[in-house]
Structure formats: structure tokens, C-alpha cells
Design a binder for these strands. Structure first.
Length: 876
RNA sequence: GGGUGUUUAGCUCAGUUGGUUUAGAGCGCUACCUUGACAGGGUAGAGGUCAUAGGUUCGAAUCCUAUAACACCCACCA
């Protein structure tokens, strides 16, 4: 087959992806091989591929492809997440554009819109993963809202409820007034904002005295039910037991004492609003205070807002400040920088709010997950530094608020039959609920119409924490063949930003529902940042279009670009130049094959000595390199594994081996050399395939016609054979000698095409790889003796061997002398440092033998070299 | 405020449990080469007092202490 002069990534990529799929190479069913399983971190169903996904999924693909080649039954399960808040927000926004308010729709009608949206945009991201080359078993694609997946979630809810671990509580939660939903602590982002600290005077009841309190939220004074001072605070001892009048509201509230109040902040007097602040709520409970909630769900003021009723909280704040000022009780206003919680999704300022929520008790559940990561090392976090973060979170774990005031998600399977606190049942279906409710209430006349299902849905993470189990149906059918075979999985690859949201909770659920870890290794990638170090985000518009990158550079190139600088766990500063580097690499390999392919093969000629030398060396070097690459993979140092392979192919294979094995221009190559080169080239492709699947598969089929089951994707990973290290280290010297000759030519302005003779002046022993030196140095011959006298020329040295090269032009003895003297000076300096070490008695007494032997060798080598240099100098 | 981590060449990073010459790689840079696989290429070169100050040791980029800058996580004092 004629090979085109350019590698056309677009055409090649779609061709081979289709081929792989047609032949079901990525499909996995349980068999007698050992499984290697990865479950994908499910991206948002309506999301589009961004750089983080590219990094993440390239890594997973590299790992799973290598596992497949190593003979494991490789199974990579893809899927998507319903992402309740994010998706619902998108649907609401879309409806708004069409002039439809969510509040005007029934739950059913809204869900219909949401499903339409999901069907329209859902799965786009999975198609994009195919473009990247991801070798997922697409027949296994799951969606967290699939009926079976949802059923698993509900069963888990019921199970945990029956175990007494799920409870309802009236709690202070993070309320997003825009989305009108609760957010978990993890979904709140604290932003530093500059605001005002208002100092407001409260009148002491029954006297003319005033007390100044400081607050950043003056509007909440309408909900004040106490003012608190520190009992140690002597300034306020006179106030103990008195009451104050809240301005505007004109309510009387008590002064309470608690050590919680800091004496050195503000005025030392704290207004207490139990309905609108977590700490105030705690104080309120401790001191039995009333709770006055002044907000509606959308954070406008309610009837407690008096004349400000109906105003938005921020509008009300301004008006109230004005009103306070008018009353003469606004003592002063100072600038104050503080952190304000905002919603990760809507950016709205979070309102702490008391409401009825469902919670999952975490402390007991977390114990096995703590043990597995921190003590038994059943699960490894890579890099290890995340262990500390994990420990900190797990040991201070708080109950998980699992209810969300949304419609898009699994609706909480609790059915209320009365208004009492416990008048509800938790069942899988509404039908079961009737039975259960009749039993629990003792009222056998209860019908479906008497039951009211909880309006809330479950937190998205409450479905994704089951992912590694539920994708194999291990919740509903815990003994099925699939889950028993594939679970626990091997690796999880994800970002450290969801270590708590997701990773920790999967570990918890794994031990709770399967009594076993969900995965052995967690590979935490860094965040992808732009070249200025900023996090890539839509808002900044600094995230390159992932698909465009693939189109312009090719998927292989983008994968290489991402891997080249993504050291484990470190953030990745993404620069498009990296993709260019990947593309250049693809081009290099392509052209290497074009060179080999272009040779005419002649069976009757014998291999050249240089080719034999080079092939022997490369075979050994290749085996050594596989070992190193394997080691890097074991340590999950994927970028090192790639860089090692990159250098192996570019430098060792192309620059050294091919240059040495290459026949003279227009001449044929002998069949044996050709066959050996092809075999080595194939092995290179195997090593490279996980990183650059498309290019390597394409070349694999150019090399020869292959049967369907002999595609590279399903071939084997090269085995690390034994090697002769001596051959490898000798060649390093050869490289230095060749470089020395090239340098000399450049120095003396001798063309690289002009043949020269080299004298080895101080050694009778033939150099290893002599034919190679002759070929790459473009030498006539190597003569092992002093150069004849009166010949002009210069010299260079590699370790202890001196090389002399004659030159036509009379040599400038001064320049040569200078060069020698510089070299001499360096070597003497070096020797001095080594001798100083050796002269130190304590060094000789304390250092291990081996180290001393090395130092002695250094010294004697240096001495020899000095002798040689001095001799050469004296000859000049 | 508490914690964790980072700081090595212009840039991005290695440096494998203190001793492989007087510290490495890739990219970038500089000079030269270039009709014979590849200019998306080749050959060579320049470039670092390993953040700073102390300490431990025969020996420190590597261990300890302090300081500084940066990053992230946790908490959230009105």
C-alpha cells in the first residue's frame, strides 16, 4: 500500500474508531481472564467536553488500553450524570427565554421539558469522547436517571432509613434564593466582598442608656430576639439582666451572656438572629430564644418585615439603613471586608435558612472509609498528599443534607398521610406506601388520595455515590455475575475538587453496600489552567474549544500534549503549543515509517556491520526502556512513561538507529536488517498505542495486511526481555564520540559530507561500535596510533581516549593550546574537589565503601586525563 | 484564623527514600546546516549561587528550624 506523504488525522481517526467499534474491541463480558475495570466519572448529561474532561479521559483511556494489551479483560464503563441543580438551572433558563416561568408549570410538565432537553443535548459529550479515542464499552452506557439506576437509589434511601441513618431535621441550611433550593456546604463558594459594618444603637428598656451593636446585615434586626455580651466584658456589666428595644420593630428583647462573643470585635455586643445565622441559631437554642424568620423563599421580606414587606433583602437593607439614620440610631458605618457565601451554580448570595430537610448520619458510615484509606491502605490516593485532606474532612464529617428543593432527580420516596411529625412512610412505590401507611397509622381506610409524596428530590451525589456498584446493578441484584466479576474496580481517575463530593462518598457506599472497596487506586489529576495560571472557566472564556483542538491537531496530538505536562496531581498549565508538539511527534513517526517503507529490499546482500551494531544496541535498549515505562505506569507517572517513549522513538530510534541502518542513497537494504527494523518499529507502535491510538493503528496496517483480530488495539503489550547493559552503556560513549567528531567539524568548518580520518592516539584497543562511529562520523577510517608528525590537526577527548583529526589548513597552535588548557583547568578543579573529599578522614571513615570506591575511580580517571592533557600540551 | 502543599534553566517540570563526575529533561532561545523520511527537520551551543537565613552531617536540591511568596483545602467573628 502506498503511504501518503502526510498524516491526515481527521480521516484516519474516524476510520479506525468505526473499525474498533464494528469489531467490538471495547466490549467486555465476564470471562475467565482477570478483569480490569474503570468506571468513568459521569459528566453532566447536557455538558460539553472541556479541557478537564480531556485530561481525565485521556488518562483513563491510556490506562485501559494498556490493560487491554496486557491481556486483562478491560472494561471501561461510560455514562452521564443528571446533575440536578445544573441541568434544572439550564432548563429553567431555556424556558424563561421562551417566556415560560417554571412556577407556571406543573411538576410533570416541567419534567417533560427537562427530558426533552436531556434527549436533545444528552449524550453529546459521549460522542465527543469518541472523537478523543476513548475505548469505552458503549453498550454499557448508563445514565443516573435510568429506571434501574433510580430504583437503586431509592432502595438505598429506604435501606438507610430503615437502619435509622436517614432522618428529617429542622436545620439551618444554605438556601439559594434564586434557585430556591438548598445547597450542600460543598456547593457554596465563599467570596471575599467588601461591605459595611453598621454600628447601630439599641435603647435600653426603661432608661436613656444605649447599647451599640455592630452588624453587616442591618435588615436582620427585624428578626433579632436577643443581644449577647461576653460575661467577662466589664464594659457591659451594668447591662446584665436588662432588656433592649429593637429599633424600627420596637420589640423588647433580652440581653444574654455567652462566652461565644468576642470582646475585641466590633463593639463586643452581638445581635442575635436565630433564624438567619448558624451561630445565632446555636445561641438561640442554648438560651431558649424565640425564632423570627423575616424572609420569604425568594429572600424578600415577609410580614415580619413590617413596612419593608415584599422588598428584596438588599433593597430592604438600604432602606432600613436610611430609616435607622433618620431615627438617629445609626452611629457609624465603616468599611468591612468579609467573606460571603455564594451559590456555585447561580452565584446568588446564600441565605442561611431554617427548613425541613432530610439528612444522612455520616459518622458511623465513614469509619470503614477512614480505615481503608488512612490505615489499611486498601485504597491508595495518588498523589499521597491528598490523604491529609481526606483525613481532615472525614474526621470532621458532618451529616449530609440529601434533600434538594428541585424537580429534576429522584423524588424522595416518603409519603405523608397526616400532619404529625412522624406521619409518613418510606417505600419504593406509591402502592406499597398505601399498605405501609395503613399499617403504621392503623387507619385501614387510607387511600392513594390521602397520601402526599415529599416534594423534594435527592442530591445528585446521592445517586453518583453508588456509581461503581449501580452500573453493574449491584444494588438491586447484589449477587449478579457482573458485579461479582467487575467489582471492585481498579482505578478511578478524577479531579481533586470532588474528592469529598464524590470519591469519599463512593468509598463509604462501597463498604456499606458491598462490604468492599469500590476501587484500589484513585488517581487525582490537577486542574487545567491557562498559560497565565488561571483556572479554565466559561466565565473567563479562557478554555479552548476541545473539539477544535482535536480537529486542528488530531486527537493523538492533543492527548500527547495533555499528557506531556500533566505530572500526577499537579495542576496543568495548558498551552496550545503542547498540542503542536504532539502533532510534530506524530509527523516524526509518520515520516520514520515513510523512510523505512521507501527502501528497496534486496535478499542477496548481507547486513552492514553498522546496522548490526545499531540493531543489537537498540534491541537491548528497547528492553531496558520497557522496564522503565512499565515502572512509570505502575507508579501512575503517565507523563514520565510518555516522555520516555517519546525520547526512545525520536532520539534513539529515529536519530540513531535509522541513521545507522539506513542504506546509502539509492541503494537497497538487505532483507534481514529490514525485517529486524520492522519488528522493532512494530514494538515501538505497541508501546505508543495507549497514548496515540489512531496514528499507531494506521501505521500498523501499513506495515502489513492484518487479519481482523490482529489489529493493534487488541495486540499485546511488549514484554520486557532481559538485556545486556554493557552494550547500552558502550553506546552512550559512542554517541559522545560521534558528537565530538561533529563538533570538531563545526569548529573547523569541515563539511559534514567530507570524509575525514580519525587517529586514536592513546589506545590500541578497538573502540566498540567502531563501524557506527565511521558511518555517523563520515570517516574514511580510524587509525589506532599517534598521528604522523608535522600533520596539522586538532584533538578532542571522550573520557580517557584522545582523538586526533588532521586538518588541511595549518592549525592555530594557540587556539588548540587554549582549548587544552581550559579542559585541563576544569579537570584539575574537578580532581581537587574529589581529592578534598578523599583527604577528609571522616569521609573515608564514615562513607560506605561503594561511595569511596566511586570517588577513588573519579580521582584516578581525572589524574589519567590530566596526564594525557599535559602530554598533548607539551607536544604543541 | 487553622491546615496542606509548592518554590530547581526564559517556560513547564523530573530529581525514586542524603553520595552516578562541578544538578537533568522537554519546549523555547542562539548559531550553523538544508534539493535524499521529516524546516512540523538536522547538528551544536548558551542558560541555574536548587526562594532566603540558619542548623544537622564526612557529605544537603534532598533532613530539621525560621522567614517570605504563591496555590489549594477547612472554618467563618457579628
Amino acid at each position: 500500500m502506498e503511504i501518503p506523504s502526510k498524516f491526515d488525522s481527521r480521516q484516519v481517526e474516524s476510520k479506525w474508531y468505526a473499525f474498533w467499534q464494528e469489531n467490538e474491541y471495547f466490549k467486555s463480558v465476564p470471562d475467565d481472564r482477570e478483569p480490569y475495570t474503570i468506571v468513568i466519572p459521569p459528566p453532566n448529561v447536557t455538558g460539553v467536553l472541556h479541557m478537564g474532561h480531556m485530561l481525565n479521559n485521556s488518562l483513563q483511556d491510556i490506562i485501559i488500553r494498556r490493560a487491554r494489551m496486557r491481556g486483562f479483560n478491560a472494561c471501561w464503563v461510560p455514562g452521564t450524570d443528571h446533575a440536578s441543580i445544573a441541568t434544572e438551572a439550564k432548563v429553567v433558563a431555556k424556558l424563561k427565554e421562551d417566556g415560560i416561568e417554571k412556577s407556571s408549570l406543573s411538576r410533570e410538565a416541567f419534567l417533560e421539558h427537562a427530558w426533552d432537553w436531556t434527549h436533545e443535548y444528552g449524550g453529546v459529550i459521549l460522542e465527543q469522547l469518541k472523537k478523543l479515542g476513548c475505548s469505552c464499552d458503549w453498550d454499557r452506557t448508563k445514565f443516573t436517571l435510568d429506571p434501574e439506576m433510580s430504583e437503586s437509589v431509592l432502595r438505598v434511601f429506604i435501606d438507610l432509613h430503615n437502619k435509622g441513618l436517614i432522618y428529617r431535621g429542622f436545620r439551618m441550611v444554605n438556601w439559594d434564593p434564586e434557585a430556591q433550593t438548598t445547597l450542600s456546604d460543598e456547593e457554596v463558594i465563599y467570596e471575599e466582598k467588601s461591605g459595611n459594618l453598621y454600628h447601630i444603637a439599641y435603647q435600653v428598656e426603661g432608661s436613656n442608656g444605649r447599647v451599640i451593636i455592630a452588624t453587616t446585615r442591618p435588615e436582620t434586626l427585624l428578626g433579632d430576639t436577643a443581644v449577647c455580651i461576653n460575661p467577662e466584658d466589664e464594659r457591659y456589666h451594668g447591662l446584665k439582666g436588662k432588656r433592649l428595644i429593637v429599633p424600627i420593630a420596637n420589640r423588647s428583647i433580652p440581653i444574654i451572656e455567652d462566652e461565644y462573643v468576642a470582646m475585641d470585635f466590633g463593639t463586643g455586643c452581638l445581635k442575635v438572629t436565630p433564624a438567619h445565622d448558624l451561630n445565632d441559631k446555636a445561641l438561640g437554642e442554648k438560651h431558649n430564644l424565640d425564632v423570627i424568620d423575616i424572609f420569604n423563599a425568594d429572600a424578600t421580606l415577609n410580614e415580619h418585615g413590617l413596612e419593608f414587606e415584599g422588598l428584596d433583602r438588599f433593597v430592604a437593607r438600604k432602606k432600613i439603613v436610611k430609616a435607622l439614620d433618620a431615627l438617629g440610631v445609626l452611629v457609624k458605618t465603616e468599611l468591612h471586608v468579609h467573606k460571603v457565601g455564594t451559590s456555585e451554580r447561580t452565584k446568588a448570595v446564600i441565605e442561611p435558612r431554617l427548613s425541613d430537610q432530610w439528612f444522612l448520619k455520616m459518622e458511623q458510615l465513614a469509619q470503614p472509609a477512614i480505615e481503608a484509606v488512612l490505615h489499611s491502605d486498601e485504597i491508595a490516593l495518588l498523589p499521597e498528599k491528598f490523604k491529609n485532606t481526606y483525613r481532615h474532612w472525614m474526621e470532621n464529617i458532618r451529616d449530609w443534607n440529601i434533600s434538594r428543593q428541585l424537580w429534576w432527580g429522584q423524588r424522595i420516596p416518603a409519603y405523608y398521610y397526616g400532619s404529625g411529625k412522624d406521619d409518613f412512610v418510606v417505600t419504593l412505590t406509591p402502592e406499597e406506601a398505601i399498605d405501609a401507611a395503613q399499617k403504621k397509622s392503623g387507619n385501614t381506610s387510607l387511600t392513594k388520595a390521602d397520601l402526599q409524596q415529599d416534594e423534594d428530590v435527592l442530591d445528585t451525589w446521592f445517586s453518583s455515590w453508588l456509581w461503581p456498584i449501580s452500573v453493574f446493578d449491584g444494588i438491586r441484584n447484589p449477587e449478579n455475575e457482573e458485579v461479582n466479576y467487575y467489582y471492585p474496580t481498579q482505578d478511578l481517575v478524577t479531579g481533586p475538587d470532588i474528592l469529598f463530593f464524590w470519591v469519599a462518598r463512593m468509598i463509604i457506599s462501597g463498604y456499606e453496600f458491598r462490604k468492599e472497596k469500590p476501587f484500589s487506586k484513585v488517581y487525582l489529576t490537577g486542574l487545567v489552567r491557562d498559560e497565565k495560571g488561571r483556572k479554565m472557566s466559561k466565565q473567563l472564556g479562557n478554555s479552548p474549544d476541545a473539539l477544535k483542538l482535536i480537529e486542528s491537531y488530531g486527537a493523538d496530538a492533543v492527548r500527547v500534549g495533555l499528557m506531556l505536562s500533566s505530572a500526577a496531581g499537579n495542576d496543568l498549565l495548558f498551552d496550545e503549543n503542547l498540542c503542536q508538539q504532539g502533532k510534530n511527534f506524530a509527523n516524526k513517526i509518520w515520516n520514520a515509517y515513510r523512510l523505512i517503507d521507501g527502501w528497496e529490499i534486496e535478499k542477496t546482500i548481507k547486513p552492514s556491520v553498522a546496522a548490526d551494531e545499531a540493531l543489537d544496541w537498540y534491541e537491548n535498549h528497547f528492553n531496558k526502556t520497557i522496564q522503565w515505562v512499565d515502572e512509570n505506569f505502575e507508579k501512575h507517572r503517565i507523563s514520565d512513561a510518555l516522555m520516555t517513549t517519546y525520547k526512545l522513538i525520536w532520539d534513539d530510534f529515529c536519530s540513531w538507529l535509522l541513521e545507522l541502518a539506513k542504506p546509502a542513497y539509492g541503494k537497497p537494504i538487505d532483507a534481514e536488517t529490514h525485517a529486524r527494523i520492522i519488528r522493532l518499529f512494530e514494538n515501538n507502535l505497541r508501546l505508543l498505542h495507549p497514548f496515540m491510538p489512531f496514528l499507531t493503528e494506521e501505521l500498523w496496517h501499513y506495515i502489513s495486511e492484518r487479519e481482523v483480530n490482529q489489529a493493534l488495539t487488541v495486540s499485546s503489550w511488549p514484554e520486557a526481555l532481559s538485556f545486556d547493559n554493557g552494550l547500552i552503556t558502550d553506546f552512550e560513549i559512542t554517541k559522545e564520540i560521534v558528537a565530538g567528531i561533529r563538533n570538531f567539524r563545526k569548529d573547523k568548518n569541515i563539511s559534514f559530507k567530507e570524509k575525514i580520518t580519525v587517529y586514536v592516539t592513546n589506545s590500541e584497543k578497538e573502540l566498540p561500535y567502531q563501524a557506527s562511529i565511521v558511518k555517523l562520523g563520515m570517516l574514511d577510517e580510524i587509525i589506532y596510533s599517534q598521528a604522523p608528525e608535522k600533520i596539522n590537526g586538532g584533538s578532542f577527548r571522550v573520557s580517557k581516549v584522545e582523538f586526533f583529526i588532521p586538518t588541511l589548513a595549518p592549525e592555530d597552535p594557540e587556539a588548540e593550546k587554549e582549548k587544552l588548557q581550559a579542559e585541563l583547568k576544569y579537570t584539575q578543579g574537578f580532581l581537587a574537589s574529589v581529592e578534598k573529599k578523599l583527604a577528609n578522614e571522616r569521609f573515608v571513615a564514615n562513607a560506605p565503601e561503594q561511595v569511596i570506591a566511586i570517588e577513588r575511580k573519579k580521582a584516578s580517571d581525572a589524574e589519567e586525563k590530566i596526564t594525557m592533557l599535559q602530554k598533548s600540551l607539551s607536544l604543541l
